[in-house]
Amino acid sequence: MARPLVCVVDDDAAMRRALCQALTGIDADVQGFSGAGVLLQDREALGRAACVLLNASLRGISGLDLQSSLRVVGNHAPVIFVSGPCDVTVAVRALRAGALDFMLMPIEAAVLRVRVAEALVRAASADARRQRVQQVADALANLTAREREVLDRVVRGLPNTGIAAELGISAKTVEQHRARVMDKMRAGSLAELVARVTEWRVLSESV
């Protein structure tokens, strides 16, 4: 797998270079971008980005606009803003929109590395959740309509006899459907099946 990428977006070349150098030694690749548009046009970088470190006062497309645009194009990497003295409303808007942090310069390199490392951990965790959601969604798509009906009732905690009564089929037929559901969902136990579907229902609403 490709290493995670930290995207440093700053239209000041000297500051962009300094921020990239401050991140030397972190467990990720670091790449600088001279503006929001440059990053948004780089599909490879957007696909790998696990953290976006950006100047709040970018010229052209602003930092806040870039934060919003990243979500629109499907990139959910944690965003960390860096800024000189600024209107507090800018920081409030960034944080309310989901930024991980809004750091005022000058920033100690060690502190910056810690925050970026936290962002990378968060990104990896979120990516793992999205993968689990997709795996369950793919498995659910392979169920027949009847198998889905049985699964929904299994998750509700109904016994085979209760499922049979609701669906108007025999308990034996329910057992057969349940066995196929367990196989298609790759669940080793009823508890695992219920946990997987429950997690999918919760996460699919937020991912």
Rank of each mutant, 00 (worst) to 15 (best):
T173P: 00
N55I: 00
L46V: 03
L104I: 15
L19K: 00
V133F: 11
R156E: 14
A187S: 15
R180S: 09
M1L: 12
A109G: 02
D27Q: 12
A13S: 12
C20P: 01
V8P: 01
V73T: 07
Q21S: 13
P159W: 11
I61Y: 07
D152R: 10
R196Y: 04
E44K: 09
V154P: 00
A139C: 09
G47V: 00
V116R: 07
L5Q: 03
A28Y: 11
C20M: 10
D152Q: 12
M15C: 10
R3I: 11
V150I: 14
G25A: 12
T144V: 03
N142G: 13
C20N: 08
A139P: 09
L167A: 01
D12L: 06
M185E: 04
V194A: 07
A165I: 04
A141F: 04
E205G: 05
L151S: 00
G60A: 04
P85I: 06
D138L: 13
I169P: 02
D138V: 08
A123T: 05
V202F: 15
A56H: 12
D10G: 01
L66K: 08
A28Q: 06
M15S: 11
A91N: 03
V114Q: 15
V154N: 01
R156S: 12
C86P: 02
V133P: 10
D183P: 00
A91W: 04
F33T: 01
S34V: 06
V150K: 11
R178F: 10
A94L: 08
V73E: 11
A137H: 14
L64P: 01
R146T: 10
V114S: 14
V111C: 00
A49R: 07
M103A: 07
A119S: 10
C7P: 00
L143A: 05
M1N: 07
I163G: 09
G157N: 05
A124T: 14
T161W: 09
R180N: 09
A109S: 03
I107H: 00
W200M: 02
A14V: 11
R115W: 05
V202W: 05
L46K: 06
V92F: 08
L193C: 03
G168P: 04
R17Q: 11
L112A: 03
R16H: 03
N160C: 06
P85V: 09
R146A: 10
V72H: 11
V121G: 11
G60T: 07
A179R: 15
G84I: 01
S189G: 07
G32R: 09
S204V: 01
L70Y: 09
E166W: 04
A94D: 04
L39D: 02
W200L: 01
L66W: 06
V9P: 01
L167R: 03
S68N: 05
A191Y: 01
Q134L: 13
T24G: 05
L100M: 11
W200E: 02
A91V: 00
L140G: 10
L23F: 02
S68A: 14
A179F: 12
A22K: 07
Q135R: 15
A91M: 00
V202D: 14
M182L: 13
S204W: 05
A50W: 07
V73H: 11
T198S: 11
A171L: 06
V79W: 02
V202L: 14
A171K: 15
S170K: 06
G162E: 13
A14G: 05
L70I: 02
I169M: 13
S170T: 13
V207F: 01
L151F: 03
S189R: 10
L5D: 08
